[in-house]
């Protein structure tokens, strides 16, 4: 394998390792639960993304075929990351925030974690 290609793959691997460590270090270091939501997103996007790019490059140069497993994993992680973040934030709100402290919701049905969902016609 060419030297430039090895250098590029190693660079992606080192950068992704550093970002993966930074994500978990932030998880330990930051003070508040809502602040802590911010740190592991680096590990998800840059960390795993870097490893997957390095692996795509490696297998492309090794076999000559482009492998799409990596794209599948990255797509799945990027699609599910906001959903899990939303659920974790809701869990924090239920445990720690009183409804009186929040501003009034602008929708008709209120906040989804405190108020009942709007009932449809079939229910009533």
């Amino acid at each position: 394998m060419e030297f430039i290609a090895e250098l590029l793959i190693s660079l992606f691997l080192v950068v992704s390792g550093v970002f993966g460590f930074v994500g978990s270090y932030g998880l330990v270091k930051l003070k508040d639960s809502v602040q802590r939501l911010h740190a592991p997103t680096k590990a998800t996007t840059l960390g795993v993304g870097g490893v997957l790019i390095a692996s795509m490059l490696f297998f492309f140069l090794d076999t000559g075929h482009i492998s799409i497993h990596e794209i599948l994993i990255a797509l799945f992680l990027f699609l599910t990351a906001p959903i899990t973040a939303n659920f974790i934030a809701k869990t924090y709100m239920v445990a720690n925030l009183k409804q009186e402290k929040l501003p009034k919701s602008s929708s008709e049905c209120g906040w989804s974690i405190y108020d009942k969902p709007p009932s449809s016609d079939e229910d009533s």
Binding site: G20, L27, L37, A43, G47, S55, T84, I88, Y92, A95
Partner: peptide, 21 residues
């Protein structure tokens, strides 16, 4: 908090995916 534990578990899953690759 429970939210911290869930977040740490989610981060562990992401790290293990990177380790597997």
């Amino acid at each position: 908090d429970a939210a911290d534990r869930i977040l740490a578990l989610d981060t562990m899953v992401v790290n293990v995916i990177a380790l597997l690759v």
